[in-house]
């Protein structure tokens, strides 16, 4: 009996290792490739023989990659602040108040989150052109609302609903306005939820590709995903893989650190967003 259990545990651990290897290997290999320079990159070995940071230097000097990172940060931060601001007030209304059309509105918003982005592309093109925002980061900050707003509203609504009634009732009895209740009473209580939702919105905005590819033109205005996708070499068949892998590692490491640091909160937010929204 005991031997059987040990065998089972051993088998499970082996399975774990196989799964973990499959999950982690591609990123490991990207790191290894980014540390190899010149012809060494074409040897498909599993560790860097003579590690060098030449690729990192190249990707930062041969193109405005620092600018691209800055662009992505500006866009992602603006999107997070705007959508959290709008969604906090909306979620108070959806989570705490009973008003006509509440259900219909919530389901409409849920519907928007399922939109294929390409379905609004020509309409957005028109707006972006009309306001002269083509090749301008504002066009991205504006258009990213279509995917960050619905899910921040849904997740924050579900958090709002779970907050205790007594605090709010006491505040209303004291004559506090709804504005005061949201900003002074609920906002501090919502802080953990805001961190989670904000982080998810940040990641979504940081990773977006279709709008960024379509609404920007010059290298200086590109965000990170577009910049990486469009890194080209001397010819189509000579992609500078070292540079691409270095750029990939640069933008992914902070994200992985962030995700691992907040992993409990993120998993809770993801499952709340999926189960309730």
């Amino acid at each position: 009996m005991k031997g059987k259990t040990a065998l089972k545990t051993g088998g499970l651990i082996a399975l774990w290792i196989v799964v973990a290897l499959f999950l982690l290997f591609p990123f490991y290999y990207a790191v290894v490739s980014s540390l190899r320079d010149g012809s060494a990159i074409f040897e498909a070995s599993l560790w860097p023989a003579n590690p060098t940071f030449a690729n990192y230097e190249a990707v930062m000097t041969e193109q405005p990659f620092a600018r691209n990172i800055l662009n992505s940060l500006i866009v992602a931060f603006s999107v997070v602040v705007l959508s959290l601001g709008l969604a906090t007030f909306a979620s108070y209304a959806f989570g705490r108040a009973r008003f006509k059309g509440r259900r219909l509105l919530l389901y409409t918003i849920l519907g928007v989150s399922m939109f294929p982005q390409v379905a609004v592309l020509s309409g957005l093109f028109e707006i972006v052109r009309m306001f002269g925002l083509y090749n301008n980061l504002l066009s991205l900050i504006f258009s990213y609302m279509i995917f960050t707003l619905p899910f921040t509203v849904w997740v924050l609504t579900s958090f709002m609903r779970d907050l205790p009634v007594e605090i709010e009732e006491a505040a209303i009895m004291d004559g506090a306005s709804s504005w005061t209740i949201v900003t002074k009473v609920f906002l501090p209580l919502l802080a953990p939820a805001l961190v989670t939702t904000g982080l998810l919105a940040f990641i979504a905005a940081w990773n977006e590709f279709l709008f960024a590819l379509s609404f920007t033109l010059t290298n200086e205005q590109r965000t990170v995903p577009v910049a990486i996708a469009l890194i080209t070499g001397a010819s189509q068949y000579e992609l500078p893989w070292g540079n691409i892998m270095a750029a990939s590692v640069i933008v992914t490491v902070p994200l992985i650190v962030l995700v691992l640091f907040f992993q409990k909160k993120l998993v809770a937010g993801l499952t709340a967003g999926a189960v309730k929204g």
Partner: peptide
């Protein structure tokens, strides 16, 4: 640890995963 490992592919931007796999 296992749960942390599971979050890694999810955390990598899609364009970056596409490039890494294209290279692999």
């Amino acid at each position: 640890l296992m749960r942390a490992a599971m979050l890694v592919p999810w955390a990598i931007p899609t364009v970056v995963s596409a490039k890494i796999w294209q290279w692999m």
